[in-house]
Design a protein around this nucleic acid. Sequence first.
DNA 1: TTTTCATGTAACTTATGATGTTTCTTAAAT
DNA 2: ATTTAAGAAACATCATAAGTTACATGAAAA
Lengths: 149, 149
Amino acid sequence: MRKDSRLSRMLHVLIHMDRLGSPATSERIAKMLNTNPVVVRRTMAGLRKQGYVTSVKGHGGGWSLAMPLNKISLLDIHNALGESSVFTIGLSDEYTHCPIEQAVNKAISDVLIEAESLLLERFGEVSLDVLAEGFTDLPSPSFAKDEGC
Amino acid sequence: MRKDSRLSRMLHVLIHMDRLGSPATSERIAKMLNTNPVVVRRTMAGLRKQGYVTSVKGHGGGWSLAMPLNKISLLDIHNALGESSVFTIGLSDEYTHCPIEQAVNKAISDVLIEAESLLLERFGEVSLDVLAEGFTDLPSPSFAKDEGC
DNA sequence: TTTTCATGTAACTTATGATGTTTCTTAAAT
DNA sequence: ATTTAAGAAACATCATAAGTTACATGAAAA
């Protein structure tokens, strides 16, 4: 089943952006992610909507962090990306009136809800500055693949 | 993102099968699930491989439970269906040498592992007979949609 | 012993949804 | 004015789960 790696990729990008100083263009980010600028804009648009990044048009424009990394959690970015559910597991809805289907679906969804709660709670406990820790003394690596991420 | 409702659907089927007495044909199950017999065989094959159901060819053949419902847990069926991961969330693997990607991926996967452990543990605690409880006194409903699930 | 019913399996087709692409517009700096 | 870059809509591609077709195998019934 298909995986959505946007969270991982966007976190990676945001931390690099933080050490970059100047705005990062969609094109630059796209190169880093081996994708293209429009996909980057689409994804970043969600983050901007929630206030985590800003975008500027024209010369010298691009994307910038709107707040320090310690104000942003994994949960924030996860939510901003707007994926409805974290699970590949879904429920049947063919016989909503069948008591057996109801019992089955309740058992499954009870578990999913509990596991998702835990997951979101943990995501909320991790802020991005913690992920960047220990690398601040490294020579700030440049951005795109051909420059050595 | 696409959902996999096989677990929910198969549990539903297995419980109905338990009260059916005679083997259920792939065609009958397919009608119940609004799908077709080959898909049913494909899915049931996983359950047979793990010993939860048996299949018999020819006249009067079909699928039967190989053990009572109280010997089968949600986890058993989940595993038998053979889905690798329960999450839609994946990790980037473009810069496996980049310490930032590593830190990001470790943070995410720590959470995923913990949440998945909880989920599997809970699935292991629920056996199918519990889901069927309370309906044993009902007139055993017949199987296919047009017969009133 | 032939027919019918049912699973087993492989190969192929379809449907869906994310991702990628093109094109054009808008806006800001040079 | 020109260049640079985001915004946005429309369209194309791709991956893959699900569905379908076709045929082989095996068991019971006629």
